[in-house]
Design a binder for these strands. Structure first.
Lengths: 333, 333
DNA sequence: GCTCTGAGTCGAAACGCTTCGACGCGGGAA
DNA sequence: TTCCCGCGTCGAAGCGTTTCGACTCAGAGC
């Protein structure tokens, strides 16, 4: 079943069928109807490879997913699903690449014209792939911000503002001594942008409000959570507000604080940056800023589509944080 | 940069370059060296679309991932990563499809020759996609077993044997009254094969050993875990052995039993079917059968490669369960 | 009535690779 | 010596689209 078969069946030339399919030239209503009927009747499907060759567009996007320790897998998957469904809406498919393939993988899919464009997740402050992405002849979008985003297109939640929002809420409620319980140490060591930015937003805003503040990386285990909680209470007896940016330890932390005799939010107020689901299911539902994975994924694809159309796009897209109040933060006693 | 450029630079014909690249005809060592040097020097990369068109092979596999409730996302991701890395080892890439695309999605990527073959995860007993997969002109492999696997190629852990192994271990340790705490009810309602088969293996083996046994679906929440534990102790006072096939509730269950005054493994022995990591990190590490995601993914790809080569492959590949002893199961007091 | 324009269609030339058949050549068998 | 075979290479014919330029035909403008 090729385009010439359809053309013959509909009594037109192959090019007319092609134009009817792509809409790049006008076709009379009658001809279009005949062509569509023939396509249906013959069950014709254009050959992806032939199309890619002739048009130099594969209609495939590459998505590079991270699989390093410390990454929260379900969140990664949410991005991926959002990217795939949005890409489909724009008539594109998604090729899955693992971080592990590295620069060579990016170069390969770009240079062989397997993909038209790339989406890269889990960007580090000084990511090795940045020079390559800048040099590549295919457009790309980063989910996450490196230290120097010039010449790239980046999108993400505004983590600095998110950190600020969490501490500001505590400040408004009258808390004077706060702590940030953050990602595992290796995430900071790798200089993953979002972790660092949360800490910056947290500290800057705490300072601006005249609060006493401290930052505590924390492994993603219940034991680590308990240890951090214990240390916090010992070293900062005046502590009444905590910001958590570490999904897996949220629940263990709440448990630990309560076991140490602190009521949430009576004695201790908590705000968090994490997906809604875990925030809502803790003993005391936690006031939190969610990571808008669906929106980030969708907008990443849309940015790419505009770049593919040759339209200009903003280099940086920062999504404003939205704080959902759930009752884990209350006025200071 | 095209193959003719390389050919000219190396002083040979384009077809010779092609044969040097594919190895489908013999090339003298000297010519091959010259060609390789030219390729490196010019930075040549074959155009994927042109290749697909001429050879009618895209070197891309489709992977259909599930995203329905009850699926455990990290496990899905492990399969996906294993599929991608193995595919790369065989010089193939992976196109990511969501369940949601349904039959039309499968048909589309197959009929447009976007992919050479398909891998489908999360197969149900009476999956709607089976007739299509049988009819498609591209080979496919299912991860999971439907009720009627004839005419298909399927691979998975032998869940029946896994259920049997878990209960047999308890039987050997002298337990006489056992229970299976299974997946959420909706998983059974959807007739997902693996859940049903675990229950079958569990029940059959318990019966064969003359044990008293019962099966209990369980939602994936700590509250549900606690409720099931409570009910179990009330209704089956003689209970001394439990098999858990529900990863998220494993830890809450252990906690619940201990809170009800049962020591593990002193008063209650537990075995489980779940990934190693959660089994190992509970208060009492749990003797378990792991789902060999890496092996399943890799072998699925390898089966597909053999089918693409026209070689015969077994319709069913059942991986034998391997029980890892961790101390949560002990002889009956 | 004549040109000009634009809508609708066609033919042919790419697009960059693979593969088939053929050819030249040297070595082993007869 | 002749014949045959197989190795290494080449030329040309696809593979199934898209796209460019050109053509036809009506209708509008004058």
């Amino acid at each position: 079943m090729k385009i010439t078969d359809v053309a013959r069946h509909a009594g037109v030339s192959p090019s007319t069928v092609s134009y009817a399919l792509s809409g790049k030239r006008s076709i009379s209503a009658d001809t279009r109807r005949r062509i569509e009927a023939s396509i249906r009747e013959l069950g014709y499907r254009p050959h992806a490879g032939a199309r890619a060759l002739a048009s130099s567009r594969s209609n495939v996007l590459a998505l590079v997913v991270p699989l390093r320790t410390g990454m929260h897998v379900p969140v990664v998957m949410q991005f991926a699903v959002s990217v795939v469904t949005t890409a489909r809406r724009h008539d594109h498919d998604v090729l899955l690449l693992t971080q592990e393939e590295g620069e060579e993988g990016l170069r390969r899919v770009a240079d062989t014209a397997l993909v038209d464009a790339l989406i890269v997740m889990d960007v580090q402050m000084h990511d090795e792939r940045l020079p390559l992405l800048r040099a590549l002849d295919r457009p790309s979008v980063l989910i996450g911000f490196p230290a120097e985003p010039a010449g790239l297109t980046c999108i993400d939640l505004d983590f600095r503002a998110a950190g600020a929002a969490c501490v500001q809420q505590l400040a408004l409620l009258g808390h004077r001594c706060v702590a940030l319980i953050g990602s595992p140490p290796e995430v900071y060591l790798r200089q993953t942008g979002f972790a660092q930015r949360v800490a910056e937003g947290f500290t800057a805003t705490a300072t601006r409000h005249g609060l006493t503040s401290s930052v505590h990386p924390c492994e993603a285990s219940p034991a680590a959570a308990r240890a951090v909680a214990e240390r916090l209470l010992r070293e900062h007896p005046a502590l009444t507000g905590v910001v958590v940016h570490n999904e897996p330890v949220l629940e263990p932390l709440v448990d630990a604080f309560e076991q140490f005799g602190l009521r949430v939010p009576g004695d201790l107020s908590i705000t968090a940056i994490c997906p809604d689901e875990p925030a809502a299911r803790t003993r005391v539902p936690v006031t939190s800023v969610a990571i808008p994975t669906a929106e980030v994924g969708a907008r990443a694809v849309e940015l790419l589509m505009r770049k593919l159309d040759g339209a200009p796009v903003p280099e940086a897209t920062l999504l404003a944080p939205r704080l959902t109040l759930r009752g884990s933060a209350a006025p200071r006693a």
